[in-house]
Simulated scan of single mutants.
Amino acid sequence: MGADGPLGELRELTRRLRAECPWDREQTARTIVPHTVEEAYEVADAAFADDPAKLLDELGDLLFQVFFLSLLLEEQGEGDLDDVTRAVHDKLVRRHPHVFGDAEARTPARVRERWETIKTEQEGREGVFHDVPGSLPALLLARKTQRRAAAVGFDWPDLDGPLAKLREELDELLVEIERAGRPAPETEPDLRVQDELGDLLFSVVNVARFVNVDPELALRRATHRSRDRIELAERLAAEAGETWTELDLDGQERWYQRAKASKGRG
């Protein structure tokens, strides 16, 4: 990669920060990666907010993370940004023989199937769950695990299976909750309730996978939506001369429903 142009300028800026900034000098891959993960989520938020200006800004932050981590590799003599670039270039060519070779893959599903075959046959990855990072958020870990199982044929034939399993797991959870009762605040959960709740969440992820929904992003959107409605409900109450925190549950619910109707599903 040449030194000219915006990418070259960013590369030189990264080197200067590493050499001259006290904070940057002290960083390691382990201390930087939490920031990398945070930047990736901010990219996701910008994309789902349909905000191109914000997406452009957040992509820049994420790109800097790639440059910085590549520089750390270079300092260890384990590769540099050029090696990172060449490696991903070669990987993309290798995993797209339907574009760069004679293979055929006319659907997205067939492309994914070929990826899994290439990973095992050409890249030497072994086992059903090869390279599934345990550090993934739990919902994404569940989805990736399910995808790997599906890649070797262990999957429901259609959506009816996951939906039936979801209902079954909900029924089992309700039985255990009724048995255990509600625990006191700040105490350990009943283990059987915990296990059944985990099974229910795993089943929810399975349904999400079948309808092409990213469960992590879906939950984040739902959380943001709820937060926005509560904040609006608080403002509406204040405009009417009421204090949200002093209202009983019925009063809060009344304003929440007005906020919900005002904001709709957005």
Rank of each mutant, 00 (worst) to 15 (best):
L13K: 08
R18L: 15
E20N: 10
W23H: 09
W23N: 05
E39F: 11
V43R: 05
A44M: 04
A44R: 10
D45H: 03
A46E: 06
A47M: 13
D50V: 13
G60I: 01
L62C: 11
F67N: 02
S70N: 00
L71P: 01
L73Y: 05
E75W: 02
G79Q: 15
D80C: 05
D83N: 13
V93T: 10
D102C: 07
E104A: 10
R106N: 15
R106F: 12
W115D: 12
W115S: 04
T117L: 06
I118V: 10
Q122C: 11
R125W: 13
E126H: 02
V128Y: 08
H130E: 03
P133G: 07
K144R: 15
P157K: 00
D158H: 14
G161M: 06
L163G: 05
A164D: 15
A164V: 10
L174S: 09
V175M: 13
E176N: 14
E178I: 03
R179T: 00
R179F: 01
R179Q: 04
P185R: 00
P185E: 01
E186H: 07
D195S: 15
L197H: 11
F202Y: 08
R209P: 08
V213G: 03
R220Y: 00
R221S: 04
R225K: 08
R227Q: 15
L232H: 05
L232G: 05
E234R: 14
R235W: 09
L236I: 09
G241E: 11
E242A: 09
T245A: 12
D248T: 03
D250W: 02
E253D: 11
R254K: 12
Y256E: 06
G266L: 13
